[in-house]
Amino acid sequence: MSKSAATRARPLSPHLFIYKPIPTMVMSIVHRITGVGLYFGVLLVAAWLLAAATSQEWFDSVSAVYGSWFGRLVLFGYTWVLIHHMLGGIRHLVMDTGNALEKHTSTRLAIMLPFASIALTLVLWVVGYMARGA
């Protein structure tokens, strides 16, 4: 006698670890992660604005934290997250218009995205330091 339908082993649904990671999939996942990073980065901006609106002592203490090596590292990371998420959004917007949907084009854009975001982040920080005079 055969097993009943209820006791037969059923196939597992496909999940993330079954698929081979391709650049477009990885950039989609990174886009979502950078969205979460932006959420926490807004807290940094809110803390800075709150300190600017309260007192000079509070603003000086927040500026000291943001001006430390760790604070600058966090702000550099936040800048990269902001730029990477923006470029990923532009990529998705272009694809939503029906352009760059071919496999080789979308893969090429996905591969270029991290390099472009790192380059733009570095350019922004270099220009910022040059404008600041530091």
Rank of each mutant, 00 (worst) to 15 (best):
R10F: 04
L120I: 10
A131S: 13
S117I: 04
F17I: 08
P21V: 06
F76D: 02
R10T: 09
Y66M: 06
S4I: 04
A5D: 07
L12N: 15
L124M: 13
T24R: 07
A47D: 06
R91W: 00
D96K: 13
G41L: 00
I83P: 01
S68D: 01
L43D: 08
D96N: 12
T121Y: 03
G98N: 01
T24F: 01
Y19D: 12
I33D: 05
S106T: 06
T121N: 07
S4A: 06
L93H: 09
M1L: 12
A5I: 08
V65E: 09
A51I: 02
L120V: 11
R8Q: 14
R8M: 11
M112Q: 14
T34G: 03
M130H: 12
T24S: 07
T97C: 08
H85V: 05
W58R: 13
S63I: 05
H15C: 04
S61Q: 14
F76M: 04
A110S: 15
G88R: 00
I118Y: 09
I33N: 09
S13A: 15
F76W: 11
R32C: 01
A134Y: 14
T107M: 01
V126E: 08
L101Y: 07
W80E: 00
I118E: 04
S63H: 10
A119D: 12
A52C: 08
I111M: 13
F40T: 11
A64T: 03
P23H: 03
V74Y: 07
D60R: 06
A64Q: 08
V74R: 14
V65C: 03
F115P: 02
W69D: 05
G35Q: 04
L93F: 10
V94N: 03
H15S: 13
F115I: 01
K3G: 09
T34E: 08
V45L: 13
Q56A: 08
L101F: 01
L49Q: 11
S63M: 09
I22C: 05
R10H: 12
V30E: 08
M86H: 11
A51C: 00
R10G: 02
G71Q: 02
R132F: 03
V74C: 05
R32S: 12
